[in-house]
C-alpha cells in the first residue's frame, strides 16, 4: 500500500462523519488494508466500530455512482442531491453534446457571416437553450418517474429548483464558453444572458397553467416573434439587445420569478383538469 487513511479520517469514519468522496476512498481502502483496519480497531469504541463495519458492508454492496454523479460529489454537491441530479435526463452527456454542437455551429456561422455589429443568430438562439434544458428536466411527459416523484414527501418545487439551477448552470456555462469564441463582438455577445433568465423564468412560471410542454413552447415562440418583428422594424441593434431591451428582460425575469414562487404549491400534484392543478389548503382543488 502506497498510502493509508489518516487517523483523523479514521476517527471521523467511526463516528459516521466522514463525507464522500473521502468516505468512498476509506471504504475501498479499508477493505484491502489490514494495517488500517488494525488502526481502526484502536481508535473506535466497539459499538461504534460494529456500526462502522455494518456501514462498510452496505457501502461495498452499493454500486459505484456514474460519471456525472461522481463529478458532482467531487465538486462538493451532497451525495443525495447528486443522485437527484443524475436522474435529470438533460444532464446526460448525449444532451450536453448536442447543445455544444449547436453552439459551435452558431458561433462558426456568426464569425463567418459578420454582416452586422451584433451576432444576431447567436443572441437569438442562446437564450432558448437554457429554456429548453429546463423544460426537458421535469414534468409528466418527460420524467419517467414523475408519478412516484409527485407523491414523495420531498416538495416538488424543491426538486424543480434543484434541477433548474443545475441545468441553468450547465446551459449558461456552455453559452459563456461559446461567447468567448466571439471576441470581436466584446461585451455585446453577452446580451443573451438576461433574455435567457427571462425566458426560463417565464416558461417555468407559466407551466402550472399551460403545462410543461406548451408553456416553454409558447415562450420560445413569442421570443422568436419579437426578434422577427424587431428585425423588420430596426436597422441597427435589435431592440432586445439595446439597453432598454435588456432592462425589460430584467423586469420580466424578476416578475416571472415572483410568479413562479407564488405558484410553488402547484408543482406538488398532477390533475386531470390542468397540468399542475395542485392542492389548495383547506379543500380539494
Amino acid at each position: 500500500m502506497s498510502w493509508h487513511v489518516a487517523e483523523d479520517d479514521l476517527r471521523a469514519y467511526v463516528r459516521g462523519e466522514l463525507a464522500p468522496p473521502a468516505l468512498w476512498s476509506a471504504d475501498t481502502h479499508l477493505a484491502a488494508c489490514a494495517e488500517c483496519r488494525a488502526v481502526l480497531n484502536e481508535v473506535g469504541d466497539p459499538v461504534a466500530l460494529d456500526e462502522g463495519w455494518e456501514r462498510l458492508d452496505a457501502e461495498l454492496d452499493a454500486p459505484r455512482p456514474g460519471f456525472v454523479e461522481s463529478l458532482l460529489v467531487r465538486i462538493g454537491v451532497a451525495d443525495h442531491t447528486a443522485r437527484l441530479l443524475a436522474a435529470t435526463p438533460v444532464l446526460r452527456l448525449s444532451w450536453l453534446g448536442a447543445v455544444a454542437a449547436v453552439l459551435v455551429m452558431t458561433v462558426l456561422a456568426a464569425n463567418s457571416v459578420r454582416a452586422s455589429e451584433t451576432p444576431t443568430l447567436f443572441l437569438a438562439l442562446a437564450p432558448l437553450l437554457p429554456l429548453a434544458g429546463v423544460a426537458l428536466s421535469y414534468g409528466p411527459a418527460l420524467d419517467p418517474t414523475y408519478e412516484m416523484t409527485v407523491v414523495a414527501p420531498m416538495h416538488g418545487f424543491r426538486l424543480l429548483l434543484i434541477r433548474t439551477v443545475a441545468v441553468l448552470a450547465v446551459g449558461l456555462g456552455l453559452n459563456g464558453l461559446a461567447t468567448l469564441a466571439l471576441p470581436s463582438y466584446g461585451l455585446r455577445a453577452l446580451a443573451w444572458l438576461l433574455p435567457a433568465l427571462a425566458l426560463t423564468a417565464t416558461g417555468l412560471a407559466l407551466a402550472p397553467r399551460l403545462g410543461p410542454v406548451l408553456a416553454p413552447g409558447l415562450v420560445a415562440g413569442v421570443w422568436v416573434a419579437v426578434l422577427v418583428i424587431a428585425e423588420a422594424q430596426t436597422e441597427g441593434t435589435l431592440a432586445p439587445y439595446t439597453v432598454a431591451g435588456q432592462g425589460v428582460a430584467a423586469v420580466v425575469a424578476a416578475f416571472a420569478a415572483g410568479l413562479l414562487y407564488l405558484s410553488r404549491d402547484r408543482f406538488d400534484s398532477t390533475s386531470a383538469h390542468t397540468p399542475f392543478a395542485g392542492f389548495q389548503d383547506g379543500g380539494a382543488a
Partner: peptide, 11 residues
C-alpha cells in the same frame, strides 16, 4: 440499487 436509493432520497 440506485433507483431504489433515488426513491429513498425523494422520501
Amino acid at each position: 440499487f440506485a433507483f431504489v436509493d433515488y426513491v429513498a432520497i425523494l422520501k
